[in-house]
Simulated scan of single mutants.
Amino acid sequence: MLGNVVTGCSVLAPAGMLAELSSGLDVTIRTAGLLITFGAIMLCVGSPVTAWLTSRIERRVLLTTTLLVLALTNAASAFAPDYTSLLIIRLVMLAVGVLYTPQAAGTAALLVPAEKRGSTIAYIFLGWSLAAAVGLPLTTMIASRYGFRAVYGGIGAMGLVSFALLWWRLPGGLRGAPVDFKTWADLGRNPMIIVLLSITTLQMSGQFVVLTFMGPLLAKLTGANPDAIGFVFALYGICGFVGIAVATRIVDSWGAWRTSVLFTGLMLAGLAGWALSAGIYALMAVSVALWGLGFASSNSMQQVRLVGAAPALASASVSLNTSVLYIGQAVGSLIGGLLFAREWLHSAGYVAAAFLALAFTAVIATRPRPTAAAAAAE
């Protein structure tokens, strides 16, 4: 879970300090935002490839090596002399870092009995909620006072701590099922997996239309200063933490589908609220809180549903879910950048809400059919 904090901060950090990256590297805010877009493209391509290449590697070696690379590349980012250097370091960082989240989920599934798999995977994903709850507001606060280099140095130090702890505590000898070409073919023939992956893409595309440029949008639409922007990021992350904590408690009794309906609906309500209240800081902050309740829990439910849809293919399907998640990030951040560059600031919320409305409709459509035994009981 702590490794996911490091991974989440590594991926999300530029969103919390676009203004500082822009001024420190002498580029536009939209160009700084391309760190997220290009990084997401690397992540979406790298996830299935690295899952295939590394599926036979023992899990403690794989996860700790990934964290060590994240730590070192974040430290290198602190000393990047220009934008091009920082972009190259980021692409290397994420090409390796893409391994962590799906392999951590798969490793967690090896450590617990099947009946606790759902809540355990949701718990592992708490790391991303903490990255948003603590990492993003701290990024904004530290970058506004000490510059973006201090942020990268801090993430690098946290990565080294996580590396040491994981090496110390994770049991050795854990191995998942090997991933081969037949695995990908089996995934492609499973309609439910295809639909679930489409839902992830829509959810992430909608969120990153706004999330990538949330700081500059708040500044332009409401005149918010860095501390006020940091507060909204904190609200987003704290509510994400609360949401996934609730999801962890209810998923084993509610089921992943009902839990997914709840939290996808909250994301839709939050982004619709952002669109309708654009320009009013307090209402936009409340909307971000609603949205935040759903962002991490919805994705963890996607992973739980993928594992349940084809347990034997879980390592590959969770990895592919990570890949399409980053496709969504790339699509959303690219659209958000185009809207921001053209000063279509109010449009971002409506575009984001449209993506989430499609995702919510698809979630409703995937309601599980009752088994024969359940139907007879009714």
Rank of each mutant, 00 (worst) to 15 (best):
L2H: 01
S10P: 02
S10I: 01
L12T: 10
M17T: 04
A19C: 03
A19V: 11
S22C: 01
S23F: 10
D26F: 11
T31Y: 02
L34H: 14
L34P: 05
L35Y: 04
L35A: 10
T37D: 05
I41T: 07
V49R: 00
T50N: 01
A51R: 04
T54R: 01
R59Y: 12
L63K: 01
L67C: 04
N74E: 14
S85L: 01
I89V: 13
R90M: 02
M93I: 07
V96I: 15
G97W: 10
Y100R: 02
Q103L: 08
A104M: 11
T107W: 13
A108M: 07
L110K: 09
K116E: 14
K116H: 13
R117L: 13
I121V: 14
I121M: 09
Y123I: 13
L126P: 07
G127H: 00
A133D: 14
A143F: 00
S144H: 00
R145C: 05
G147Y: 09
A157I: 11
A157P: 06
M158N: 02
L160F: 12
W168R: 15
R169P: 00
G172F: 08
L174M: 11
R175P: 04
D180N: 12
F181D: 13
K182Y: 09
L187T: 12
R189T: 06
I199A: 03
T200Q: 09
F208D: 05
V210D: 00
L211I: 10
L221T: 12
N225K: 04
F231K: 10
Y236H: 14
C239G: 07
C239W: 10
G240R: 12
W254Q: 05
A256R: 05
L266T: 11
G273K: 08
Y281E: 06
A282W: 14
L283P: 02
S298L: 00
N299A: 08
V304I: 03
G308Y: 00
P311V: 02
N321P: 10
T322R: 06
S323V: 11
S323G: 15
I335Y: 06
L339P: 03
R342G: 15
R342C: 09
W344R: 15
L345R: 05
Y350D: 04
L358A: 14
F360I: 06
A365G: 15
A372I: 09
A372S: 13
A377I: 11
A377D: 14
E378K: 14
